[in-house]
Design a protein around this nucleic acid. Structure first.
Lengths: 314, 314
DNA sequence: AATCTGTTTTTAATGTAAAAAAAACAGCGC
DNA sequence: GCGCTGTTTTTTTTACATTAAAAACAGATT
């Protein structure tokens, strides 16, 4: 009735924590583990019990005192739960739904029904309903009361609408960003991000796949200085959309990432100059490129799981 | 297991439709009624059956032919279901939740739990969960996974954040609005709205309570010209927030509405001049007033259901 | 007193079931 | 063939049940 994904995820993370220790070493207290794994002590106890079953932790029965736990054997790769089982039912629905969209399994204007999706995704209608509501927020679905859901499509209109708002919000965010003092936390983060840009460019041939994570950090640190929940929420939407499109659209990836890195450096330079005019120019230029990339992805879609050979783009 | 609010609402609306007819008149076909009431024929049939029970429609048993329905007696006020029963469980939760917020039953930072709310609101946790998610979208709630909901409060910060975004969006919307030709649908609507402003001002002493509906029409027609789902969605949030605050904050209502009407007329004049500079000035001025009104309401809160006597404001 | 573990109580996540509403199907009269 | 009503099938809405996880409680040891 309720999945135990929290348990499985915690179990795997506990194995990671224990991997570095010698056999026979005493374990941290339940409370400390709970804090380290970011779950309740109840879950920690379930994990420890399972680790006991697996022979990974043993209990030293000291007379009188509380039974301290010790590491029985080093955990191996076979001890882990498969990753597929560590996603909550809800998160799994989100992921699979996004995959279906990107692979073109739904057409724009198509009506989706919850019962059918529940069957296809192997969950209950309750879970489906709860999480389809999220995509309504994304502007990808529209709910028809007492009827089906309308898939509005990952269309060029969608890309343009999301980018029109993004541009307004990001330009506004630069205003609050440049007002912060040099020593403030976001500025330190900006400098760190800039350094990582140089490091990534130096090894672009092998490291280019780590660009998205850097992109996320840069734009997020800027957006978060607004302290405006609506702007930050909206960036969460953008972030999710990108997370998935980045994963599916592999065409020209290295070239695209290199261009974006250079534009980022120009943008960062403008921010450091605190010259509003320059900031607007560089920000707009970068967002224009990013918008074109998304539009291109959509036009080329449906996306493919296979990485196409270089030069295969239309 | 499922409320029959659609049935009750349709029943009441059917009574309205029938009220104007003579006893003995033939009824429209089931399909026509379904279309008129905007529900399925299944519901229409249930309504007709209930109307039959109540003696409001009678079936003329014509030999051979299909049994035509006729109006048995004119419906009276006692035939209606009470309005409280015509809201879907979900809509009822939204309404009650908003009432609780406005009356100060929740404090900012308070943790809410679904089970408790379900008990208080008299519904199931399923319904509560589904609809609390909406308020997350509003920025009023934050969901803690595997834990409670955090009420973030109808605070001055909330008002300022929502108005900062509103200002960006509405100014942007005026850009698309002024690009439309004079004969376009939104412009016709604008002229109609302007005329209604004058009409309302002429009878302000008695008509001022109908201002909110006019306010909604004006701002919505402007926002909708953007054709941007994110901007329009955001206006839906604003609209809901206002719908409830208008209902609860009755202090100085006539004066506030009069001021807003005058500002609207200035704003409309600027739009008609299509002078972007003037539009920005008037729009900003009006939104500044509206923001101050909301801030004042929040500062004075919790709101009261009683209309305070004139001059009782702090 | 603080910290640890064992136990009990609550609450959230999620599947299941039942009723209401929608949609599809079928026959009839014109 | 078209529109109408009667019937059957699907699907949505909503309550409820069950399990995982969190939180509160309680002794025991240092």
């Amino acid at each position: 009735m309720k999945g135990n994904t929290v348990f499985k995820r915690s179990y795997n993370r506990a194995l990671d924590l224990l991997a570095g220790r010698e056999a026979g070493a005493a374990l941290p207290s339940e409370s400390d583990l709970a804090q380290a794994l970011d779950v309740s002590r109840t879950t920690v106890r379930a994990v420890l019990a399972a680790l006991g079953e697996a022979g990974i932790v043993a209990r030293a029965e000291e007379d009188g005192g509380p039974a301290r736990r010790r590491l029985g054997r080093r955990p191996g790769p076979g001890d882990y739960f498969p990753d597929t089982q560590t996603l909550s039912a809800g998160a799994a629905v989100e992921r699979r739904f996004m995959e279906w969209i990107l692979q073109g399994d739904f057409r724009a204007g198509q009506l989706l029904n919850a019962a059918e999706l529940a069957r296809q995704f192997g969950t209950s209608t309750t879970t489906i309903r709860e999480h389809l509501a999220q995509f309504q927020h994304f502007g990808l679905l529209e709910r028809r009361p007492n009827s089906a859901w309308l898939f509005k499509g990952l269309t060029p209109e969608f890309a343009n609408e999301i980018y029109d708002v993004r541009e307004m919000f990001e330009l506004r965010a630069t205003r609050s960003f440049v007002e912060l003092p040099e020593e403030s936390e976001p500025w330190c983060e900006l400098l760190a991000i800039e350094a990582e840009h140089h490091a990534l460019l130096a090894n672009i041939d092998t490291e280019y796949p780590s660009f998205p994570q850097l992109d996320e950090r840069l734009h997020r640190v800027i957006h978060e200085t607004t302290d405006n929940r609506f702007i930050i929420d909206f960036y969460d939407i953008i972030s999710t959309i990108f997370h998935y499109t980045y994963q599916w659209n592999k065409v020209d990836e290295k070239q695209r990432n290199t261009t974006a890195l250079m534009e980022h450096l120009d943008y960062i330079e403008a921010l450091r100059s605190r010259d509003q005019r320059a900031i607007d120019t560089r920000c707009r230029k970068h967002l224009r490129t990013a918008r074109a990339t998304l539009l291109r992805s959509i036009a080329d879609g449906p996306f493919s799981l296979d990485t196409l050979p270089p030069g295969a783009a239309s």
